[in-house]
Write a protein that binds this DNA or RNA. Structure first.
Length: 216
DNA sequence: ATCCGGTGCA
DNA sequence: TGCACGGGAT
């Protein structure tokens, strides 16, 4: 089976067994963008606490967060871990949002994907995965998100080396799939769900995995 | 003890 | 290529 058919087959298998994911959880594009920064190498449950704290204080708007002291912000996002560095990263993103789009995330959609992605990547603290997550899940741009789960899952299926470069891994999916926001959205979400519940770090639960039929 | 929707810096 | 960043859940 060629690569494209295999990747499409895996997608269909996951969707059939797990159902749609309804990603990204969040009430607004801005909440999704902040969540993308907060969830860097961090369990989503911890991110939810941090976002809950911000909501509770009515601070989940660009203007309110921008006006907030670093110390206050750090304390509120503390449950998400790495709170000092993430405070800096959020503030970097807010400065970018102010200068580039008058605090209006949707104004970023006036750019093409190809010119916007490098601009977001230039923000210190926003790497390729966070940038693509914001572009896809907050702004509906057709860019495919890959992550540690993706590399692990693909590696265990013998398709890539474990430490494959981000953009190489991404290209594998882009080349195999139709350029479609809904498919990109759902595919990454399904991989994360499979990664959490079956393709675990220590020992994969391959026998019961939705992707078991695709193992060799 | 181990892991988590990573990233930047030496 | 290593390493720091970090609280919370299992």
């Amino acid at each position: 089976m060629n690569n494209s058919k295999k990747l499409i087959g895996m997608y269909e298998a996951m969707l059939d067994t797990l159902g749609p994911s309804h990603w990204w959880p969040g009430d607004s594009p801005f909440e999704i963008a902040i969540g993308a920064i907060l969830t860097q190498n961090t369990n989503w449950k911890n991110v939810e606490k941090a976002i809950g704290n911000l909501k509770e204080h009515n601070l989940l708007t660009p203007q309110a967060l921008y006006a907030l002291d670093s110390d206050k912000l750090a304390e509120l996002i503390r449950p998400a871990g790495y709170y000092n560095i993430k405070t800096r990263r959020i503030r970097n993103f807010l400065s970018f949002l102010k200068s580039e789009a008058e605090f209006d995330l949707l104004q970023l959609k006036n750019h093409s994907l190809d010119e916007l992605r490098p601009k977001i990547l230039a923000v210190n603290g926003i790497g390729p995965e966070t940038a693509d997550s914001i572009l896809l899940y907050a702004l509906d741009f057709p860019t495919f998100v890959v992550d540690a789960y993706t590399a692990r899952m693909m590696n265990r299926h013998g398709l890539v080396h474990e430490d494959i470069d981000y953009h190489e891994l991404q290209a594998l999916f882009v080349d195999a799939l139709p350029e479609n926001v809904s498919v990109y959205n759902e595919y990454h979400a399904l991989i994360v769900r499979v990664g959490k519940d079956w393709c675990k770090k220590k020992k994969g639960l391959c026998e019961s995995c939705p992707l078991q039929p695709f193992l060799d």
